[in-house]
Design a protein around this nucleic acid. Structure first.
Lengths: 115, 115
DNA sequence: TGCTTATGCATCAGAATTCGATGTATACTC
DNA sequence: GAGTATACATCGAATTCTGATGCATAAGCA
């Protein structure tokens, strides 16, 4: 009954898209950015994010660059060419997904004027 | 990289919504209806559907009615009052979800005329 | 008659993803 | 020196779904 259930499966799309658009970001920054931008509607948990970032690097979609800022460690991630293509593809897939869902959820649109 | 990954977490919404709108349906009918309506973009597997239907009945959102049609068994499902409310709520949640996702996926809309 | 397909239910092992808790470490503020 | 923010990470458990398998009846076709 958890409405946030719908966000399952979207994390990869979100991460790739943000990195493709914003150049480079580090993990913590991703969580803060998404939380702020959505007014808290979407919060990325660290337990989901870090394993995913590692997986995307292993898959060749992201590159990492370790840095040290203000004494703290940071790992900047940026998309590879392959990652950029995947990001675009996944955004398209998301739009198609929304269209498909609308087709199912609204089988009888309230517009009988088409008769 | 599977685009159908996005449909994760939407099955409950789809089932409740269809039943709320169409009165009553049986499992096999649900799979066929969704497949036809989406031109195959969304196919509900039996391994996902039947356990969910049982769960929704246990949760009081659906009722079952067993029938025998043309010698074959059928189990018609229909929403309870609680299930109808849940269906409406989940459709709202889906719309909110889409808005949230758009906010994240398109942080910089290509419309500078608002300046 | 026998084979295949369609209809209709169901379970189950494994995969994939995520949650929530926990852990480590540095910097800043009070 | 205590708490909060920053920043990384892992891990067990829960949830959900896939794909395979199984049972049974009816219809179509060779």
């Amino acid at each position: 009954m958890d409405t946030t259930q719908l966000f399952r499966g979207t994390l990869q799309t979100v991460v790739l898209r943000l990195l493709a658009e914003r150049g480079r970001m580090y993990g913590y920054e991703l969580t803060q950015h998404v939380r702020d931008r959505t007014d808290g509607a979407l919060t990325i948990s660290e337990g989901a994010l870090y394993p995913l970032l590692h997986k995307l690097v292993a898959a060749g979609l992201l590159d990492v660059e370790t840095a040290r800022v203000n004494g703290r460690q940071r790992k900047y991630y940026h998309v590879t060419a392959e990652g950029r293509a995947a990001a675009a593809e996944q955004v398209r897939a998301f739009e198609a997904f929304v269209e498909t869902m609308r087709a199912v959820l609204a089988p009888l649109p309230p517009n009988p004027s088409a008769a």
